[in-house]
């Protein structure tokens, strides 16, 4: 059962990621990205990380992507225009970086089972909220606090930018 589901979600993730890059209509691109997030959430769930999988849906699919769709619709982006000629340099760089990334992925995949250990199916409750909370507030307390300060800075910055008085139009 688990392998079937794994290949279903993995295939879905790859297919929708490819469609996201290749589709011409930006709204459809956003929707395929949402489907990718869902497939990833499914994979997390299969790994026993229930909390991570639901948070993935809430934060990425439910909040961030809604904003993406909102902005895409508000700007009313039309079909993608073909890149003008003379952008050979960009595509050259793109190919080089894609090749580097591909090699890295292959190396990680090859070393994966050796370095990270094989994921076993006998710890299905590894990602529960209780365990995650305990780990965050004991072992990882320092990075947790640093991250919260970072988020606070972001919130304060957003409020300052948002509350800046615009010159009154008379």
């Amino acid at each position: 059962m688990i392998p079937i589901l794994f290949f279903f979600f993995a295939g879905l993730a790859i297919a929708s990621a490819l469609l996201m890059v290749t589709h011409k209509n930006p709204v459809y691109c956003a929707i395929f990205l949402i489907i990718t997030f869902f497939a990833l959430a499914g994979l997390y769930f299969l790994l026993g990380a229930q909390f991570l999988s639901v948070v993935q849906v809430i934060i990425y699919a439910g909040a961030i992507m809604v904003l993406f769709v909102f902005v895409i619709m508000l700007l009313n982006l039309s079909e993608e225009v073909r890149l003008p000629a003379g952008r050979r340099l960009q595509s050259g760089f793109g190919i080089v970086f894609a090749a580097i990334l591909g090699v890295q992925l292959l190396v990680i995949a090859a070393a994966g089972t050796r370095v990270f250990g094989r994921l076993s199916g006998d710890t299905p409750v590894s990602g529960t909220v209780e365990r995650l909370g305990a780990a965050l507030f004991s072992t990882y307390l320092y990075p947790f606090e640093i991250a919260s300060v970072l988020l606070l800075t972001g919130i304060v910055g957003a409020i300052i930018l948002g509350s800046k008085k615009l010159p009154k139009e008379q």
Binding site: I58, G62, V69, M73
Partner: peptide, 25 residues
Amino acid sequence: DLNIGFLYIFALVSLGVYGVVLGGW
């Protein structure tokens, strides 16, 4: 009986908006 019951509901609630937004668009 999900361990993350409330979060599951919350995730689904946050998805309901897509139908409305995409229907309008």
